Simulated scan of single mutants.
Amino acid sequence: MELGLATFADLAADISPEQRMKNLIEEATLADDLGFDVFAIGEHHREDFLISSPAIPLAAAAVMTERIRLSSAVTVLSSDDPVRVFQDFAQVDLLSGGRAEIMAGRGSFVESFPLFGLDLDDYDELYAEKLDLLLKLRERTHVTWSGRHRAPLRDAGVYPRPVQERLPVWVAVGGSPQSVVRAGTLGLPLTVAIIGGRPERFVPLVELYREALADAGHDPAVGKVAINTHGFVGATSARADAAFAAPYLQMMNRIGRERGWPPSGRREYEALRSPRGAVAAGSPEQVAEKLLFEHDLFGHDRYVIQMSVGAVEHAEVLRSMERFAADVAPVVREEVTRRAAPAPA
Rank of each mutant, 00 (worst) to 15 (best):
Q164E: 08
V287C: 02
K136C: 13
T144I: 13
H300N: 02
T191K: 09
A243T: 05
A242I: 04
R273K: 13
G4L: 04
R333Y: 05
R333P: 05
F244S: 06
Q250C: 11
E26R: 14
T29C: 02
A245G: 09
F8P: 00
L153S: 09
R182H: 08
L186D: 07
A325N: 00
P114L: 07
P199G: 09
S264F: 14
R338E: 12
A55S: 14
P57W: 14
R106C: 06
H230M: 04
A151R: 07
G197T: 05
L77Y: 10
A12H: 15
V331M: 00
A183N: 15
M252L: 10
V222E: 09
V163W: 10
H314Q: 05
F109H: 10
G147V: 09
L3D: 00
G256M: 06
A13I: 11
G265H: 11
T7Q: 07
D155V: 01
A311E: 04
R339A: 12
E268V: 14
V225Q: 05
K136W: 14
G174C: 09
H45S: 01
H149N: 01
V317G: 05
E111W: 14
R302K: 04
N23Q: 14
T229N: 04
A55I: 01
A128P: 00
I102Q: 13
G35V: 08
A226G: 08
V233Y: 14
P330W: 05
V173D: 02
P262W: 03
A100D: 05
F232P: 14
G197C: 02
V110P: 00
A28P: 04
E268K: 15
I305A: 02
V328I: 04
A151L: 09
I194Q: 08
L95S: 12
L292N: 00
A62I: 12
D215Y: 08
D81H: 14
R239F: 01
G117T: 10
G184W: 11
M321L: 10
V332R: 01
L318P: 07
V332G: 03
R150N: 07
G265P: 15
R138F: 06
R182N: 12
E270K: 10
A193M: 11
T7M: 07
S52R: 06
R276M: 01
E268F: 11
T185M: 08
L272H: 13
L115M: 15
L5W: 08
I195H: 08
L70F: 07
I51T: 15
A235K: 15
A246M: 01
S179T: 11
V85L: 04
V225I: 11
T75R: 07
I51K: 15
D241W: 12
S320I: 12
L292R: 00
P54D: 06
L95M: 13
Q87P: 02
D88H: 15
H295S: 14
L58A: 10
Q164C: 03
I227L: 03
F113W: 15
V336W: 10
I56M: 14
K290W: 06
S274W: 13
S112F: 14
E289T: 12
V222M: 06
V143I: 13
E47I: 02
R99E: 02
R273N: 03
D124A: 05
A61G: 08
F86P: 03
